[in-house]
């Protein structure tokens, strides 16, 4: 291949590589950062790391998994730098028990198909907004474990906390989100 043609081919490949992956990468960064501009920065940084490391990519995971971890890390890096907003405590959203350890809960009639009340898109938007209401140290763990699919050990390593701490926060985050989602999940029973 002549030099000029080879260069053109590489430029075309680079462009296709970026357009194939930028959509999901932006979505990951936006979920973590909840800010479009910061998410774009994270993705831009991630591509730099990806291109710098592509030659040494060892194939121990799939290319997409490897890229996914890079964009997660870049987003978390920006998150740590950005100022933390004032947050309300998670406790009012956690389940309540009486003195004998019995659950005090307004029970719900779970509608078998909440889809009948809300469209899938409405539900997805609702879920997204409710996740954003969780205090950050819970929100991040919920996102990394339940949406991004990282293991407990991976999350513990990235956030530099213990496995059991990850599990405790994950359970609280899920419980709190369940509470916040009650209007979507069903109607109150009495």
């Amino acid at each position: 291949m002549d030099q000029n043609l080879k260069m053109k081919h590489e430029i075309y490949e680079d462009r296709a590589f970026v357009s194939d992956n930028i959509g999901w990468m932006l979505a990951v960064a936006e979920r973590i950062l909840n800010d479009r501009m910061h998410a774009e920065d994270a993705v831009q940084n991630a591509f730099q790391k990806i291109w710098a490391g592509l030659g040494n990519f060892e194939g121990r995971s799939t290319l997409k998994t490897w890229m996914h971890r890079i964009v997660v890390n870049e987003a978390l890096m920006i998150l740590r730098r950005s100022t933390t907003r004032k947050e309300s405590p998670i406790d009012p959203l956690l389940p309540q028990f009486d003195d004998s350890g019995c659950r005090i809960e307004q029970s719900l009639v779970v509608t078998e198909t909440p889809e009948s009340l809300f469209s899938n898109a409405e539900i997805a938007t609702n879920v997204q907004n409710m996740i954003m209401q969780l205090p950050e140290k819970y929100r991040i763990i919920l996102i990394l474990r339940d949406i991004e699919g990282l293991s407990t050990a991976e999350v513990a390593q990235i956030l530099k906390i213990s496995d059991s701490n990850v599990k405790i926060r994950l359970h609280r985050a899920r419980s709190a989100l369940k509470k916040l989602l009650e209007p979507v999940l069903g109607e109150f029973n009495g």
């Binding site: 997204q128 339940d146 949406i147 899920r174 419980s175 999940l185």
Partner: peptide, 16 residues
């Protein structure tokens, strides 16, 4: 409800 909330959370994965 806890399981249902978790399933709805996991579905966020598919949003691009």
């Amino acid at each position: 409800e806890y399981e249902r909330a978790r399933a709805l959370t996991e579905a966020q994965r598919n949003i691009e």
